[in-house]
Design a protein around this nucleic acid. Structure first.
Length: 223
DNA sequence: ACCCAGGTGGCCC
DNA sequence: GGGCCACATGGG
């Protein structure tokens, strides 16, 4: 299949353009998990504000966060949008984390990636992207995180093999046997280019992936 | 006054 | 198993 090699060529073009990115703003594993949940279908700038509030209040620790009532937590993360839903999701994770791992990432890390992934997907509010973000960014597992940009960027550049989340993840992981560091940067590059050039209204003029646009440059380059 | 953002669960067929 | 909808704020 040429999807993998084409994707790899696109990745190389992005790295040549601006270097590797070394991603995910988050000092601790808990902060990464919280960020992964809060950023669901939400701009990161909105999430930053919520994280700042949690830090100011000293709530960004397991034992503390567990004890914050759901409605108070919801108000604190208001800027992230869907704040009632997300407060519930955070508490659902914390409950699982306490009951299953005693609130310890060290213990959680003893699990194999596949079985842990299944457990994370069983938590209310944790879907495939959030689960994989936790596995990759908090636990350093070699998992590729598929997101809306991944679908869009690959589709626009004729590199999408079709299928949904699991299909795409499987194909990419099979064709690019990466370390966690590579999957980290690959995802970061896709979000970078998606954010700057490949939104629903694409702005392809100065995009490093311009050479990969199928059927000539002009088709999607307008607007 | 729109449109959109690093999704997910519930419900329907 | 796919198609739709609610969930909600802040920035362009």
């Amino acid at each position: 299949m040429k999807t993998g090699s084409r994707l790899l060529e696109m990745y190389d073009a992005l790295v040549r353009d601006h270097g590797t990115l070394d991603w995910w703003p988050g000092r601790t594993k808990l902060e990464i998990v919280v960020g992964a949940i809060l950023t669901q279908n939400t701009a990161w700038s909105n999430v930053e504000k919520s994280i700042a509030v949690l830090k100011e209040r000293g709530w960004l620790r397991i034992r503390t966060l567990e004890r914050v009532p759901e409605d108070r937590l919801a108000r604190a993360i208001r800027s992230s949008g869907y704040f009632r839903q997300k407060a519930r999701k955070l508490r659902a994770f914390l409950r699982y984390f306490r009951e299953r791992h005693g609130g310890s990432f060290r213990r959680m890390a003893r699990m194999g990636t596949d079985s842990l992934r299944e457990e994370l997907l069983g938590i209310w509010g944790i879907g495939p992207e959030t689960a994989d973000s936790i596995l990759l960014y908090a636990l350093g597992r070699p998992v590729f995180v598929v997101d809306a940009y991944t679908h869009r960027v690959l589709r626009r550049h004729g590199a999408h093999p079709g299928g949904g989340y699991e299909d795409l993840r499987g194909i990419i992981e099979r064709e690019i046997r990466g370390t966690a560091a590579l999957y980290n940067d690959l995802h970061a590059q896709i979000v970078w280019v998606g954010h700057r050039y490949c939104k629903t209204r694409p702005r392809c003029a100065a995009c490093p992936l311009l050479p990969f646009l199928p059927g000539g440059v002009a088709v999607e380059a307008g607007r």
